[in-house]
């Protein structure tokens, strides 16, 4: 079997280093020894294919998982999953989780003194369609304090987890909202030096997706690693 192409290595400045001292949890959890270069073999250009068979129709509507409506500002978050070559990535699992409108996670370890919402769990999932599109209906999460440094607050964000076609396209990240004044102070948002890369984590307001008298629309496109044109050797 001749070697198949691997995946492109990250553009400088667009992916974080493991050690990012401003985000204190990295100090004891980042490797201190050199990483060993991994040529992309069959073990990595393959990966789990978890698709629509595990998804229920309502899993992408976080406002319809309980008897009542959750508190907060209803939003639609949608976008397209593309690879670095600009091609849509169809049929892949997208998982999200988030705090409620008051900035509280429905999680035993979240001790923030803000109300839980009995009508909001904060969990959603879907599979991209044939053109790579995904869509969720949810409520806008609130900002919340955390213990990283004095008066530290996380900007409002939604956690995203995507598989893509291989182990190498696995991506966990966070989506932010435009105009959030907390972004410039947040060590997680600022974990990479590349300004454009950071800005690509911020959704844009989408008037066309906005449903009159019901919900604001936001668009956020996600890019997964793309294949090399030729087999990689090193």
């Amino acid at each position: 079997m001749s070697d198949k192409p691997g995946y492109r290595r990250p553009q400088a400045g667009t992916q974080p280093d493991y050690l990012h001292p401003a985000y204190q949890s990295t100090n004891l959890r980042s490797p201190s020894q050199p990483l060993v270069f991994l040529p992309h073999s069959l073990s990595e250009i393959t990966g789990p294919t978890i698709g629509a068979e595990r998804i229920n129709e309502k899993d992408n509507d976080l406002t319809a998982q309980h008897d009542g409506e959750p508190q907060g500002e209803r939003i639609i978050v949608h976008g397209r999953v593309l690879d670095e070559n600009g091609l849509p990535v169809p049929g892949i699992l997208v998982e999200i989780w988030q705090a409620n409108a008051a900035g509280r996670y429905n999680h035993a370890r979240d001790l923030h003194d803000a109300p839980l919402d009995p009508n909001f769990t904060g969990t959603g999932r879907t599979v991209t369609d044939a053109e790579g599109w995904y869509q969720f209906q949810t409520i806008k999460p609130g900002a919340y304090p955390w213990g990283n440094h004095h008066n530290a607050w996380r900007p409002a964000h939604i956690h995203f987890s995507l598989f893509g076609p291989s182990v190498l396209t696995r991506l966990v990240t966070q989506m932010y909202f435009p105009g959030d004044p907390l972004l410039e102070y947040d060590p997680i948002y600022n974990c990479v030096p590349d300004t454009s890369a950071k800005q690509r984590l911020i959704a844009t307001f989408d008037l066309e997706k906005t449903i009159p008298s019901y919900a604001l629309g936001y668009r956020w496109d996600i890019v997964l690693r793309g294949r090399d044109a030729t087999p990689m050797e090193k």
Partner: peptide, 23 residues
């Protein structure tokens, strides 16, 4: 067209909310 992969961020301490279903 050439794009750059979206920046990775931590799963944070509360990932169980979104990810445990697939354990």
């Amino acid at each position: 067209m050439s794009l750059y992969a979206t920046t990775s961020h931590t799963v944070g301490p509360y990932y169980h909310i979104g990810l445990t279903w697939l354990n």
